[in-house]
Amino acid sequence: MKRQGNFSREHALFLKKYKQNTAVVWSFRIGILIVLFGVWELFASLNWVNPFITSSPSRIAKTVYSLYQDGSLFYHIGITLSETLLGFLIAVVGGTAIALALWWSDTLRKILEPYIVVLNALPKIALGPLIIIWFGTGTKAIVFMTVLVGIIVTILHMLSAFIATDGNKMLLLRSMGASKVQILQKLVIPAALPSFIAMLKVNVGMAWIGSIMGEYIVSKAGLGYLIVYGGQVFKLDLVMSATCILCLLAALMYFLVVLLEKTIVKNPNR
């Protein structure tokens, strides 16, 4: 957008309207959060709801603070975060690589198609007992679960993006004498970049599902562990605290992907 010194009256009005709209959106966004937490706190402090069951914002704050004081807050966050990120990374890189291989060889794709379809439909949690027996009860099992949840979606998403490459552009490259590697490099991969970003966004959600699910099955530490443990001993403050932290982390990771999108997709006109 070009900035000009003096706008026409109409343009100034347009800008004003745009700013007003943004202000309305943001004040409602924040307003809803404040009202939600306010009502929650009020109801709990007036004992209109049982804070033992519903917890309350102030009790959550206290719980988080005490976790922070005994040093376990960042310990648990660190464990879950590293499991999630590692699983996310392996799923994204591995899934994309497998999708590339499947794009490369039609025959391989045809052979593996039914397996991928079945694996995609299978609820991964069904593999829980196997994972415990194979990978033990440590980090490895949780990361494996995270990868499992993310990788199939990644393969399917990226494969359909690679296959959707414009046939005429391929013909054009072939007429220039391009090799398959060059077609991949110059056309298929850059054309799939927007799909790759969309896939990253989907995978942020998948990775958290995988890691928390993993921690539900086997874990000695982490946010998922805190939620399960809190539920078992009826410490709903702990459950709510861990859930709120999860919300923050998931949002943070999503925004990092959006930031990445803004830096690598430079051309807004594509």
Binding site: N168, K169, L172, L187, P190, A191, N267, R270
Partner: peptide, 9 residues
């Protein structure tokens, strides 16, 4: 070709 097939990126 019929369309220009310029790469948009």
């Amino acid at each position: 070709l019929q369309k220009d097939e310029l790469f948009p990126w």
